[in-house]
Structure formats: structure tokens, C-alpha cells
Amino acid sequence: MRRLLRHLILCCLLGMALAASAQPLSAQVVLVSSESAPAYAETTRSLLDALQRSGLSAGAVDVLSPDELTRRADAGRLGPARIFVGLGVRATQSLLAVDVNAPVLSTLIPRRSFEQLLRASGRKASDQLSAIYLDQSLRRQIALVRLALPQAQQIGVLLGPDSVAKLPELRTQAQGAALLVRPAEVVSDQALFPALREVLDGSDVFLALADPVVFNSTSIQNILLSSFRARVPMMAFSTAYVRAGASLALYSSPTQVGKQAGLVVMAALRSGHLPEQPIEPDDFLVDVNPNVTRALGLTLDGVELRQALRRLERLP
């Protein structure tokens, strides 16, 4: 029922956007969404809510698909928009490909992907081109580990080509929390199990860092099984991992991302520029898989952990 309602609203929004697109672009904010998946729709809705709550009329926001954006840009009908918001990798990519002549905020994008896009387009992050990453900060993650598993001494990580760069910071953060990092690098998926065994052997917690070579829909099952068999709780970066069998996950929901993006957009509209450096999500959720944690002899509560973490970060 809820889902249906969501779809209905999205359809209305898209309809409005299409109606608007018929005219030369006169909106102040142009929202480009990579796709119509629930996460993007939810983010869009949340962003629009935030904008409206900040006093921006509904007519001031246009929602486009990457293709529409490209078509309009080709037709020279992009109009006098004051800010462009890209949701997801594809949207950001298309915005980077068009000379929009206005600030561009990319959101709902992993740090790795944004950096890749910048490299590919030869541009740099600035107050005209910024992002809100999906990735949680390592500090927050280590803090959560500490909160959830106070007894943990060693923290295992599997590093792929993308995530290997995080190791120094991770070590620093872990050290601060009196945790020892047991890293193992995965060069190819064939070497996954030996690395995994090495990491899990002796670790108290297994921290998953986003890297598609290591963590993907094919490997996750066996990684989860291995960690479960080794009785090492796994902390992941998405609620999908919790559903698949991870003990807990730290992540930002699309609503939270949308809300944060709305605030950034309003600030940009007011000031005319974006944060110079991409920012990390300011709100988050902690999901716990009660079955797995119970089987591992743990008692965790996601809500409590979130609140404790927020308190730790001195967030409201």
C-alpha cells in the first residue's frame, strides 16, 4: 500500500516534470535522477520536501532523467537554472558532460564513483561542483564497532583495489579506538577465500568496506557464510547486507540523503556556491540482523546504537 502510494507520487512528480519540460526551463533547481528505482524516488521526494519546507515553491524544481537533460542541453533549452542536483552516478555523469553554467551537486554517489567521474571529466571538486557521499566516515564506523562490540580487539578488513587506499586512515582510526587492524588484500575473486580466512582468523569483528571486487552480489553469500562460520560478526555498509546475513550495518537512508541535499541546495541558492569539498552524510541508521546476532551470542539494538553514536558525534 505504501509502495503503491510512493509510486503514485513519483508518477505525479514525473508527470509534472514532463509538463514543465515542455516549456523552456525556468526552474531554479533542476533535479537529475539516474533512475526510477525506489532509493532514487525516495531521495527525490525527501529532497523536494526539504526544499518546500525551506520555502521553495514546487514550480521552482524540475525533475529530469539523464537523457532528457542531454536532449535539452543539445537543444539549448536548459534555461536559467540556479543549481543542478544529480542523484546517482549516471545523473552526475550526464551533468558533468553538459556545460550547465551553474553549481552542480552530486548526491547518492559513493566516494569512489565521484572521484572516478572527476578524473574522467578532468574536473575537480569546487564550490561549483561538489557532492554528498554515500560512504560513512571510517571514524564513525570504528566508533560504532566500539559501541556495538566493546570487547573487540582486532578488526578484520578485506581490501580491494578501490578500498586499499583507506588502510592508513583505518589504521589511524582503529588505533585511536584501541583496535588492531587485520587487513588482507584481494587481487582477484579467486583469492577471496584464502584472504577471507586470513582476515577472519583471529578477528573479533569483520568490517566490510565498499569495493565491488570484494563485495558484490555473487561473493556476499559465501563471505557472510564464512564470517558466520568463523563466528565473527560482520559490520556492513548497507541495509541489504543485514538482510543477507550481516550482523549489523551503518548507512544513510535515501530520506536522510535527500534531506541533507535539500539543506545544501538551499544554502547554495542563498550563497551561490556549494561546499568546496564533498561532504559525508550527517545522518545515518544502524540496522541489526537479530537472528544472526542472536546466533552469535550478541544482543544489539540498532536504534540504541544510532542514538549512542549520534550522541558520541554530538549530533541532535
Binding site: V89, I109, P110, L134, P212, V213, N216, S217, S238
Partner: peptide, 17 residues
Amino acid sequence: SDIALDDLFDGAAEPTV
């Protein structure tokens, strides 16, 4: 086993895997 993660993280890298 293929588990649909519906994840914003690995969408772009999926085909290579």
C-alpha cells in the same frame, strides 16, 4: 548464489564481476 543487494554502492561495478 546471487543475492540482489539493491545497493547504491556496487551498481556500476556489477558487470565486471
